[in-house]
Nucleic acid binder design. Structure first.
Lengths: 217, 217
DNA sequence: AATTGTTTTAAACATCTGTTTAATACTAGC
DNA sequence: GCTAGTATTAAACAGATGTTTAAAACAATT
């Protein structure tokens, strides 16, 4: 029971609870009163410590992202000395774990999911700080696997194919929960799902690489 | 300017506008007043013709689904006399077109997208009537391509891989609009994206089929 | 033309929203 | 112990929301 007691200052409690509530409800559905109630704090505190609900949201987003990147860094996939096949598998696994972590951390991806589905002003900054770097890393790995300088749109589409497979588990979670719950039942199931995506994508990419060299004989 | 004039009865105008507004805003964010305003109708009309906002939403959902299935039927992909490769390509193309159609129709997929991201009571019925049949059809095609009775989880994961690639264009539309707008710029770009997904998936599936026959030598 | 049933209307209702205010409680620093 | 700055509180504000009401307008039947 990590209940936010008075031992932590109200500011911190507020920020932490805000991450939770915004992750659950999204910006618009979340209410200041709910946040304050859970943090055992007066309604006026949000406007006292943060300027407004919107400002609190921005700070909560930034906080959640810092935490997520601290716990799920992509540095293994960044290692250029590894073979690209392994880097791809590492990238996908880490990304999926980050997405599906339902502990304190899963909140981060829930925040993004809400933000993507129903963008607020904060989306542009999120894209810059969180999404573009991930895209760039995966793009580099894909180029290594495709070889022989493929055209940009092909790389982009392959990138979306891979991200799409991963994000399916996040954005369509409500469907998977009802139709295929066993695919995300426990950690080993999640790992198996990650390995599937890696195999599936690798198979497609190597096939693409072959076709590139020997274009439709 | 297909502005809803008084020529159509208020009930129909209301239903039509409701689809639009719910598609734009989702159930919770949409307001009865906005719907009535756009339909040139008094606020009380929603509760007069439909019992409540929620009942209006349910009817709007059902209406949009009927329209979508009327304009984008999956009957070509259903044709069992076609080779599975072609059925897969047809399925993906039709599905993606349905998703990305921004005319009167795209509204249908926006409604689902909102519903999946932020489920209401209506989700269960949507899953039954709209999603399960699509899943079943694609599952049948996948089984045909994998051959030799693959285990269920493999089929399920492949299915999610394919749907995930398609849904990426819907659920992460806000990101694609900003980073890769050329991939959905016009009809030919969308068709090319559909063909990419089909090729990508087919490559992976045939590879999987080979591995199944000759398991990791 | 009067009566009936159906639509439409403006107004009000009750509740919830983010935000503000002004008073109170608390906590150093002298 | 008093004071200055900070933190917290209850109450109120102004606006929006879904819903209801009761009166008015309309249409069709007799």
């Amino acid at each position: 029971m990590t209940q936010p007691t008075a031992i932590e200052p109200a500011f911190d409690r507020l920020l932490q609870v805000a991450v939770e509530v915004f992750a659950e409800c999204g910006f618009r559905e979340a209410t200041v009163r709910e946040i304050c109630s859970r943090a055992n704090v007066n309604v006026a505190s949000v406007n006292y410590y943060f300027r407004s609900k919107e400002a609190l949201y921005a700070q909560a987003l930034a906080f959640a992202f810092r935490e997520a990147n601290r716990l799920y860094p992509q540095d293994a996939a960044f290692d250029k000395s590894l073979p690209p096949e392994q880097r791809l598998a590492l990238f996908i696994k880490n990304f999926l774990y980050k997405l599906l972590d339902d502990s304190q951390l899963g909140l981060h991806s829930k925040l993004i999911a809400h933000e993507i589905a129903d963008p607020t002003k904060a989306l542009d900054e999120i894209i810059e700080t969180a999404i573009v770097p991930q895209f760039a890393l995966l793009e580099e790995i894909i180029r290594q696997l495709l070889g022989s300088s493929p055209d940009n749109v092909t790389v982009q589409r392959c990138l979306l194919s891979i991200f799409g497979q991963c994000l399916m588990f996040k954005h369509s979670r409500s469907i998977i929960d009802r139709l295929y719950p066993e695919l995300i039942a426990d950690e080993s199931a999640i790992q198996a799902s990650a390995e599937h995506i890696a195999q599936f994508s690798l198979a497609a990419l190597t096939q693409f690489a072959l076709q590139k060299v020997r274009p439709t004989p």
